[in-house]
Design a protein around this nucleic acid. Structure first.
Lengths: 193, 193
DNA sequence: TGGAAAATCTACCGCGTGGTCAGTAGTCTG
DNA sequence: CAGACTACTGACCACGCGGTAGATTTTCCA
């Protein structure tokens, strides 16, 4: 892979197309985002879009990847800076924090989870559930949590609660996500010891 | 509203169409369920479908309503038979139980939540969050829960955890939903007193 | 400054979509 | 048994979709 050098225009257009696609999906959903709309939002023709990307699906996938990359970068950094129960709590806080600050990205991810069949992570990568379960297992083994907590089940439940908080903030802008994250962390502390 | 009497054939066809629509949405998602597919699955022509329903959307809405009616009937009955914290736990168990037994219905509901713009509950009805929050508030006031639990936040988190358990069972058929429900109830008992 | 390469346009294609319409068996009834 | 009504068919329509072809402008560099 020699990674052919990209033109300036190329880079700029790609970035712009990814940007408008994220916005469109956030506003009109995955199904309501057509090639024509993307082109119109970017101020160019359909053909021009397909000049920079091989297909409409590729545009959407690139947009999705871009969002996911931003999220994982931030959450990964936050988690890596901690260990044990603190890492789990950093995960919750950074996740909620990022998504609260980037509602458009959030919509995009939520939509992708349910609607998009082709758009998902690389098959080899560990699932979100597994990653979180590992975090919880580590906290348990470090003695922060009771010995009988089930990392897998706890991960499922915790992720669900997290998603619910994020979803709630999408439908109710007045919803205090930071407070909710704090409340969730408090609940978990109480339950997991 | 005189509620004109429906023919036998009419009733049968409507029921059949609702059935195949639920199945189709469960299998191919909301977006992938076209009028032609519905007609084909029912063994009649598109026009015949539109003879019994005013539009494709109406078919989908009827299917959704049918599913929701079944769910609320079962959960409502389970909850009404209990009070305090027991009602909350009955809610969790009946919800998970019903959805585990009717995976097709589950898919339909999950799809509807995210994708369908037109298909949602009647605006006047209380939201699921509100209903659950009321349940939790009642349990708190009855002394089953600590006085400082926040019914609204707890409801959001609990519903999220519930949804996650259900979703997990869809992607992993081996997932033990009853055990997960039990685990969740246990967690909640510990946290909420 | 000229010519290649990059970037874009307009026009078009085939297809699947939701939906309409005229016609027609079958059935029930006055 | 005539006629109304139910239940349905197949042909058709307009539209929006993703994608393609060829001509055309714009950019860049020798």
């Amino acid at each position: 892979m020699p990674a052919k050098p990209l033109t300036l225009t190329e880079q700029a257009r790609r970035a712009q197309l990814i940007g408008v696609t994220i916005d469109l999906i956030a506003r009109h959903g995955y199904a309501g985002t057509s090639l024509a709309r993307i082109a119109e939002a970017a101020g160019i023709s359909k053909a021009a879009v397909l000049y920079h990307f091989p297909s409409k699906d590729a545009v959407v996938r690139a947009a999705y990847d871009s969002v996911l990359e931003g999220l994982t970068a931030r959450v990964g950094a936050a988690v890596a800076a901690q260990s044990g129960a603190a890492a789990v709590e950093a995960y919750i806080r950074s996740m909620v924090g990022y998504l609260a600050e980037n509602p458009a990205h959030t919509r995009m991810i939520v939509e992708a989870i349910v609607e998009a069949p082709a758009v998902d992570d690389t098959p080899g990568a560990p699932s979100r559930r597994q990653s979180v379960a590992a975090l919880i297992a580590a906290a348990r083994d470090a003695g922060d949590y009771r010995a009988d907590v089930d990392p897998g089940l706890t991960a499922v439940i915790m992720n669900g609660a997290l998603d619910a908080i994020v979803s709630e903030s999408l439908t109710d802008p007045a919803f205090d996500t930071a407070a909710a994250a704090g409340y969730l962390i408090d609940l978990l502390r109480r339950t997991l010891r």
